[in-house]
Write a protein that binds this DNA or RNA. Structure first.
Lengths: 180, 180
DNA sequence: TACAATTTTCACAAATTACTGAAAATACAG
DNA sequence: CTGTATTTTCAGTAATTTGTGAAAATTGTA
């Protein structure tokens, strides 16, 4: 499968960014080509488009599956598997946020909780625990938010983000206007 | 500088997480020990606490500076430089969000804009551009939000996060009640 | 300015992570 | 069940990233 120059340059960029996004170069490229292509692709097509080995594609797909980022298709009369990305970009964003939270926050939250259970043996540990508590509380709030995000429709999510600076004003008047 | 077992295990954990957070192991460990210690530390203390070379500490500090994550102190009569983290955990969070955005979103936003300027040469590129537009719009909204975050006090930020599920309700009544 | 303390840089080494081809496993049509 | 298409696994290698010590640069004091 050949790829247009426009797609090519986007794919290269997403490859470079991939590593900054907790994925890696190949994964970034793979997801880019899948997201930017309308028709579902099979592993051989991806392998050819990105000039990487078939086995590398297989491993990459496995990881994209673990991120819940791809949909699986079957074409009648064809034994190959085809992959596509959700057509709703908000769904992709939601998934990304949740999966990153799982990987970046959840394990830490658990470690922080463990540290809070311990008995501080001296003053220095008391300070440490205080900071741990602060981090814990903050991360827990973020977790609540990402959970909230999961339940929101794309429309609502979009409306929320569009608020932009409005969110600050909205917060100011919140107490006056609602929620008892 | 020796380190208590509690701090030790936290430092090790943050080291492991560091790589998932766009930093790396050493940077994660370094920042952990700085955040969890009340008194500002000098490079030698960090080097000893983490059992890493002095030069590695120097490079790590350089990077933490580029993230705006540390404050610099001077102790009278001592030529060494001392480092600490902001005492307000929300300030740390704000900084992290903004710096990650700079690294993870800004370059992509610019690439997406470039792609949107191009003339699609065929149907496939038209689809690609449509997706690029969606991604661009989403990322731009996120950027607006992170900017908004920068201007918010820690109290306000905390209130916003505490909203949790309330945010959804708040959005529902917003249209009815205010902000024309 | 000279000197010692401290920090930074950088070439190389060590460690980690990613990629490949070959072989094994799986899926499925006849 | 057999044979073939397809996918997955995995050991070895390649590429990348990270860490070190020695040397250079910088800082501040006398």
């Amino acid at each position: 499968m050949k790829i247009t120059p426009m797609k090519q340059s986007l794919v290269l960029h997403f490859g470079e960014m991939g590593s900054r996004w907790g994925l890696n170069r190949t994964l970034g490229q793979m997801y880019a080509v899948i997201v930017l292509t309308e028709a579902p692709l099979n592993a051989d097509q991806i392998s050819e488009a990105l000039q990487i080995s078939r086995s590398n594609v297989s491993m990459g797909l496995k990881e994209l599956k673990s991120w819940n980022l791809i949909k699986l298709h079957h074409v009648p009369g064809d034994r190959k598997e085809y992959f596509s990305a959700p057509s709703d970009i908000w769904e992709i964003a939601r998934t990304l946020v949740v999966e990153r939270r799982k990987r970046e926050l959840d394990p830490t939250l658990s470690t922080l909780r463990d540290a809070l259970m311990e008995q501080p043996s001296n003053e220095s540990d008391e300070y440490t625990q205080m900071r741990v508590q602060q981090m814990h509380d903050l991360m827990e709030m973020v977790t609540l938010w990402t959970n909230e995000m999961q339940g929101m429709s794309s429309e609502k999510l979009s409306a929320l983000l569009k608020l932009g600076e409005g969110i600050s004003k909205l917060l100011d008047v919140k107490d006056k206007l609602l929620l008892r």
